[in-house]
């Protein structure tokens, strides 16, 4: 009964989504992702995290690939790594913008790599067969601990270690998962001897997190380093002398369906993207409220990547 109902619904969804080509964001139904040509497909699925900046990067890949003659299915706004990585590994997604250090730490809890090069060297083995990282972009977007300018001046805060001057038990505003991340409270305790409690604000270091920091609801906030709000709000990013937070270069992770020609297209995008450029793209999204496709189109055109 249940399966027949499910099948009926699936058929209905398929039929309807077939009529509406204007719905590129529909998530995969089981039957839709059945095609499994091993190598070099001209139809690729590009995915993104549930994070606007990641969606912009995914859209850069998508439009560049479309320009290169590929047919792209977009699957954006997929939750966290825990949700999308199994889909990548399962062959449902072919191209995904990732962040090198966090990806490595996620795949290998005992990873010892510290520098950007070490991380990239360790990634292919950690990803295993079926997936591979392409060349990393110079752009980075990593977790960073930020304080208000007022507090930085008051307590003399420059590095994460200085947080001990603020008090014994501190609050950090961040997405709830930070509580379990190696660079979250466990690592801060281990490497810096700090006791931090996570105040969960589920906007990925967005405006509410910034507001909470400025309202004094927390002592520090985890904000991605390419977030334009850091500069806009004169926040001070604390340095990380113990290299607790691994370098997070933007790195495309691709499936076997991505051939060398497609990889070359993506590589060009990666090479052109710097951290400053990424901050600029994010600012267009947050301040100018542009959509990811607009932002990507303008940037790619400006870089001469759309021919």
């Amino acid at each position: 009964m249940k399966t027949r109902f499910a099948a009926l619904v699936a058929a209905g969804v398929l039929a309807l989504s077939a009529c509406s080509s204007s719905n590129p964001l529909g998530s995969a139904s089981p039957a839709a992702s059945g095609s499994s040509s091993a190598a070099g497909s001209t139809t690729l699925v590009v995915g993104s995290q549930q994070y606007y900046s990641n969606e912009i990067i995914a859209e850069l890949y998508a439009q560049a690939l479309e320009h290169g003659g590929y047919t792209i299915t977009r699957q954006y706004q997929i939750g966290q790594r825990e949700v999308y990585l199994p889909e990548l590994q399962g062959g449902k997604i072919d191209v995904f913008p990732e962040y090198s250090g966090n990806l490595l730490q996620y795949l290998d809890k005992n990873a010892t790599a510290k520098t950007g090069d070490e991380v990239m060297a360790a990634l292919p083995a950690a990803l295993g067969s079926g997936l591979r990282p392409l060349t990393a972009s110079p752009a980075t977007d990593q977790d960073s601990y930020n304080v208000t300018k007022a507090n930085a001046d008051k307590y003399g805060l420059a590095s994460i270690a200085d947080l001990s001057k603020v008090g014994d038990s501190l609050k950090v505003c961040a997405n709830s998962e930070l509580a379990k991340r190696p660079y979250g409270p466990p690592g801060l305790k281990n490497d810096y001897g700090l006791n931090l409690e996570v105040i969960p604000v589920e906007d990925s270091g967005g405006p509410l997190t910034v507001k909470a920091l400025k309202d004094g609801k927390c002592d520090t906030a985890d904000i991605y380093s390419a977030d334009p709000s850091i500069a806009a709000n004169e926040l001070v990013t604390l340095t990380d002398p113990k290299a607790l937070i691994l370098p997070q270069n933007v790195v495309p992770v691709v499936s076997a369906k991505v051939d060398e020609k497609a990889a070359a297209v993506i590589d060009k995008v990666s090479a052109a993207l710097t951290t400053d450029e990424l901050v600029g793209l994010n600012a267009l999204s947050v301040n100018k409220q542009q959509s990811s496709s607009e932002i990507a189109k303008t940037w790619l055109t400006g870089k001469g990547l759309l021919g």
Binding site: E82, N175, S176, E177, A179, P200, E202
Partner: peptide, 15 residues
């Protein structure tokens, strides 16, 4: 949005 309750466990578990 930063308040407490049993949702704390729920979101942490989800994420």
């Amino acid at each position: 949005v930063g308040a407490g309750g049993l949702g704390r466990f729920l979101f942490l578990g989800l994420k």
